[in-house]
């Protein structure tokens, strides 16, 4: 009843916010002194964060979906102490990818979810109905490019003099 499903394959954004608690997340975003955030479940709450904090800005790197799926699959099924050969189970995995364990999914499904998530982000910030203000709040950044660090610094801090000392990420 929850999680990424055909035909759209999007992570279950609504359910994730509901389970985390909208009121609690609102309070956290407004009062916890948050300056930067990455990893689950932040990417899955982009619309809520954008509406709650009109000053918040966002970054995304658009990887090749199949490369990402292979990387995620290999990492989460590896026999390391963290993923324990794919035994590691997580509620967010279910709500994001449709299976509690990545090992119960497959790279093709993961790639579909990846494409659906990036599409949802791009539609929201850069789609035809997005305002100019909303457009400027998302930086699409290739993390492998030569000056990725400088660009991210300038996006995060404005034209801060210290940004010139950064080059790659």
């Amino acid at each position: 009843t929850a999680g990424a499903r055909p035909p759209y394959w999007r992570p279950d954004y609504r359910r994730i916010l509901q389970e985390l608690g909208e009121e609690r997340m609102h309070s956290l975003l407004m009062h916890a002194g948050l300056q930067a955030a990455a990893d689950e479940a932040w990417p899955l709450m982009f619309e809520f964060i954008a509406k709650t904090r009109s000053d918040a800005r966002f970054v995304i790197w658009l990887r090749d979906a199949n490369d990402w799926a292979r990387s995620a699959w290999n990492f989460f099924t590896a026999p390391n102490t963290w993923s324990r050969g794919g035994a590691y189970a997580n509620r967010f995995f279910l709500l994001s990818y449709g299976s509690c364990r990545i090992a119960d999914s497959n790279p093709k499904t993961l790639a579909k979810v990846y494409r659906a998530h990036t599409k949802a982000v791009l539609e929201y910030f850069h789609g035809p109905t997005a305002s100019a203000a909303l457009r400027n709040r998302l930086l699409v950044l290739d993390f492998t490019e030569q000056l990725a660090g400088r660009k991210l610094c300038q996006f995060a801090l404005g034209n801060h003099a210290d940004c010139s000392k950064h080059t790659a990420l």
Partner: peptide, 30 residues
Amino acid sequence: VPPIIYLGLQKTATSAFANFTSLLGLVTVH
């Protein structure tokens, strides 16, 4: 500082983002 949020899913350089924003002196939740 207005918050900056990385929207890549896991294994899409989340650590690189968190390390870099911490290097910039930002309180980074990872």
